[in-house]
């Protein structure tokens, strides 16, 4: 709360107050519009299946039902386990990613670093070209043997990405005065000290951003699970959800249905699919406010410091 006070302390002028009112109003409108479709999904997941099919999606469905969630409850142990895996992977992966990303971005941000351009290019190149799934698959499974381990969910692809690296580099370059680094070096600080004592503390807002992006990427990822996991006890939540969703999509496409004989398959209904979507974002709704505490602190902190 001290941050709030610090801002309030400045005794905002009329001008500033007006702008805040304007911002609040506009943001409220945008937020409501953004949330409407999501509310729709939540309501659809509580709508009776037949009603949903007959009348379409509605904010005020004629008949409510919790059947879709009953379907989930029956598989609750699997779902809880998958949540656990995903949360663990997200936490570890994000932490590792922050360490690697902030470190490699530092030399890239130093204009007096001889290989600055080369290193930046080296990093950027990975954003453009890749060898494709197959070669990566061969490498990770044959050389590193990470199949069916938690490493398979953490290490390939998401541990570090060019996009985040450049975000951090950019922040280092623009928000942290070079003079600060120079004076520290005059005082005899090593590069490592500069990095830990100056760069990292001052880069909190951008680290928070990058952490958030990485966490989202890990949370939403199902490709690593698809390629490297066959043991279902290591399935993350997205793998669980995507499997049900995509099996339905697959069977609905006309050619496949004819191929396999539509009559064999009793598909979960639309409301179940909506419930799956809700289940995918629910924990984020619960966890995010806590994580956000640090995140917003970073933002407001950076703002106050200056």
């Amino acid at each position: 709360m001290s941050q709030t006070k610090a801002i309030a302390y400045e005794k905002p002028s009329n001008d500033v107050r007006n702008f805040r009112v304007f911002a609040s109003v506009v943001l409220t409108v945008i937020t409501v519009l953004t949330l409407l479709p999501i509310v729709l999904i939540v309501i659809a997941s509580f709508t009776d299946e037949t009603t949903l099919l007959a009348n379409g999606y509605s904010f005020f469905p004629a008949k409510l039902s919790t059947d879709a969630y009953y379907y989930m409850v029956r598989q609750s142990s699997t779902i809880l386990r998958a949540y656990g895996i995903t949360i663990l992977v997200t936490a570890v992966g994000t932490l590792g990613s922050i360490v690697l990303t902030t470190a490699i971005a530092y030399p890239m941000s130093r204009r007096d670093f001889r290989y600055r351009g080369a290193l930046s290019f080296f990093v950027f190149f990975t954003m453009l070209f890749n060898g494709g799934v197959v070669s990566a698959y061969i490498m990770w499974t044959r050389i590193f043997s990470i199949r069916d381990t938690l490493f398979a969910l953490i290490i390939p692809n998401y541990l570090m990405g060019a996009f985040n690296i450049f975000l951090v580099r950019n922040y280092y370059e623009n928000a942290i005065p070079t003079a600060l680094i120079e004076s520290a070096q005059i005082d005899g600080a090593t590069e490592l000290t500069v990095f830990f004592r100056i760069m990292l503390p001052l880069a909190v807002p951008t680290i928070a951003t990058v952490a958030l992006f990485t966490a989202l990427a890990y949370w939403n990822d199902w490709t690593n699970g698809l390629y490297y996991i066959t043991d279902t006890s290591l399935y993350g939540i997205q793998n669980l959800l995507i499997r049900i969703m995509n099996n339905i999509q697959f069977l609905k496409s006309s050619s496949n249905a004819a191929l396999l004989g539509t009559q064999t398959v009793d598909l979960p209904g639309t409301s179940v699919r909506m419930a799956l979507a809700v289940i995918g974002i629910l924990p984020i709704l619960i966890i995010f406010p806590f994580a956000q505490k640090y995140f917003v602190k970073g933002v407001v902190l950076g703002a106050v410091k200056g």
Binding site: F19, R20, L241, G280, F288, Q292, V296
Partner: peptide, 25 residues
């Protein structure tokens, strides 16, 4: 410019939610 923590949280959190939905949904 909101400058107030609680509202920043609510707006930012809500605006991010669509990013969590898969394209199928």
């Amino acid at each position: 410019e909101l400058g107030e923590k609680r509202r920043v949280k609510i707006f930012q959190g809500s605006l991010m939610l669509p990013n969590l939905l898969s394209w199928v949904v």
